[in-house]
Nucleic acid binder design. Structure first.
Length: 273
DNA sequence: AAATGAACCTGTTTGC
DNA sequence: TGCAAACAGGTTCATT
């Protein structure tokens, strides 16, 4: 489901709802997520107050004054939102935190590819799931020059490179396709064969599409909803993703779908070389 | 070393 | 209509 813009939208929505709130209860209904949930560890959050919420790649990090951080990943179908305690449970609502204001923070995930875990705050950066994550595309650390230097001599298709979280954080299938279309680069282009100008265009396109998607509150195709259970509006702005056979908005050619590394890949043969 | 495919899951859509 | 296959926003492991 969610890529960087969706996770960031949830983060921004949760921040005012959770900051300063104390956890009064923890309920684990399903332990079988991507990693087995340890209820005893989650229960250590009881009594802790949320002091801030960070995002790293597609992970949400909820820091508390107990020196513990709640790590949440939404996988493909996960949701994380705040609602009144009296609201009936959704299907697949696996973890529920009760708050001191009568509301609840709930995690639901039909496919169970997501995860919920408590980590000592000091060890978040060194956590096995976060340690090897690559450059954050928002902010200044990611540049065309840096990506080009990292890929010299490699033949990996550029789309697969963008989606490799060890290289670039937070870019998934939708935004990889969208950024490549904006940059006019074919998804199969070998990273080692891209010149400085192409890398600069690509980095600019990644940053732009992510920023615009965040402004629109993310892309809702089916499952994604923000912290207040509202849909995102970016689906109408997609230029290639899920538009096979439709007209390219730029050249009027037909959008094509191919499979790369097992994932549907949408591009315009006229605009992308 | 690097790239692909399979696996982990359930729900929805598509095609015969 | 009904059933089966294909497919879905992610990540990780095994296999070429």
């Amino acid at each position: 489901m969610p890529e960087l813009p969706e996770v960031e939208t949830i983060r921004r929505g949760l921040e005012p709802l959770l900051t300063g709130r104390r956890v009064t209860g923890v309920e684990v209904r399903e332990r079988r997520l991507r990693r087995r949930v340890a209820p005893a560890m989650l229960c250590r959050l009881r009594g802790a107050a949320v002091v801030g919420i960070r995002r790293r790649s597609k992970y949400l990090l909820l820091d508390t004054d107990a020196g513990l951080t709640l790590l949440v990943h939404l996988g493909m179908s996960g949701r994380l939102w705040v609602s009144d305690a009296a609201r009936p449970a959704r299907p697949h609502e696996h973890v529920v935190f009760t708050l001191d204001d009568g509301r609840t923070l709930r995690f639901a995930d039909p496919r169970r590819f997501g995860l919920v875990e408590v980590v000592p705050s000091g060890r978040v950066a060194a956590h096995p799931l976060l340690r090897a994550i690559g450059l954050e595309p928002l902010g200044d650390e990611m540049s065309g020059g840096r990506l080009r230097a990292a890929t010299r001599g490699r033949r990996k298709p550029v789309k697969n490179f963008l989606m490799d979280t060890r290289a670039v954080a937070g870019v998934g299938n939708i935004y990889a396709c969208e950024a490549l279309h904006r940059a006019g680069i074919h998804p199969r282009r070998a990273v080692g064969r891209m010149g400085p100008a192409a890398w600069d265009r690509l980095v600019a396109a990644v940053k732009a599409v992510l920023a615009e998607a965040i402004d629109a509150g993310g892309t809702t195709l089916r499952d994604y909803f923000n912290a207040a259970e509202e849909a995102g509006e970016f689906a109408v702005a997609l230029r290639v993703y899920d538009r096979e056979g439709e007209a390219c908005r730029r050249c009027r050619g037909r959008i094509r779908r191919v499979v790369l590394a097992g994932r549907s890949t949408f591009y315009c043969p006229g605009c992308q070389r």
